[in-house]
């Protein structure tokens, strides 16, 4: 089943070309690995998938009501915001229908602790985000994205600040969930996981033409 279809997508910021004639299909169950040079347009492409950026021309069709989990490359929020690590992670679970005087269920709390434990950040769950290292923050944002219980996980260089042990931990986790969740990941990592079934190279200098599907 097709989740996302990009047809002849071009993107210009004023007169800077970020994407040139991109054609891309992502199917349910895909694990797409995106690489390319700095400034090649990878982040722009992911922001189009999440709907944050609209293309200058071309057509994007997406499956309706797709639950998306997203890990940004650069965070836009204020690191001094008074909030605990746990509360940031649990924000992912607010994608369900709105409830007045919402309280997280015991089950949801347990699920959060499980995911955080998997990423080795359960010990800092009550810390302020202000004091986190870049790598710790990246893991928290990853947990938040996973906790959306997504159909599609969109990851923009999620391991860029991680030590090799944490990188392995996150990649193992991705391998594990890749059976149920469609994954689109930008990365500069050398060793690509065996679960990846499609590799896309994004750069304005070459046309992207990838009908990503199971091998």
């Amino acid at each position: 089943m097709e989740l996302i279809h990009f047809k002849n997508i071009n993107m210009f910021y004023q007169n800077i070309c970020a994407l040139r004639d991109v054609n891309l299909t992502i199917k349910k169950g895909d694990y797409v690995n995106i690489t390319g040079p700095n400034g090649g347009g990878k982040t722009t492409l992911l922001k189009m998938i999440t709907g944050m950026v609209k293309p200058s021309s071309g057509n994007i069709s997406m499956k309706k009501d797709l639950k998306i989990g997203y890990v940004p490359q650069h965070t836009l929020f204020d690191r001094w915001f008074p909030i605990k690590v746990k509360d940031v992670a649990m924000m992912g679970m607010l994608n369900k229908p709105k409830k007045y005087f919402h309280q997280f269920t015991e089950e949801e709390v347990k699920k959060t602790e499980e995911v955080m434990d998997c990423l080795n950040i359960l010990t800092i769950q009550d810390a302020q985000i202000t004091g986190l290292s870049g790598g710790q923050l990246q893991k928290v944002l990853f947990a938040r994205a996973v906790l959306t219980n997504p159909d599609l996980l969109v990851l923009d260089e999620p391991t860029s600040n991680l030590d090799s042990e944490s990188k392995d931990m996150m990649n193992t986790y991705l391998d594990k969930i890749s059976k149920e969740v469609t994954i689109v990941k930008v990365t500069h990592e050398e060793n690509i996981s065996g679960s990846v079934n499609k590799r896309v190279y994004v750069s304005q200098d070459v046309k992207v033409n990838a009908a990503a599907g199971r091998k």
Partner: peptide, 20 residues
């Protein structure tokens, strides 16, 4: 107070809030 979690999410990170 009735929508506190959503307000906090919006105040903290409106990009992510919009996506979810």
């Amino acid at each position: 107070s009735s929508l506190f979690h959503y307000w906090r999410a919006y105040l903290f990170d409106d990009e992510f809030s919009k996506i979810i």
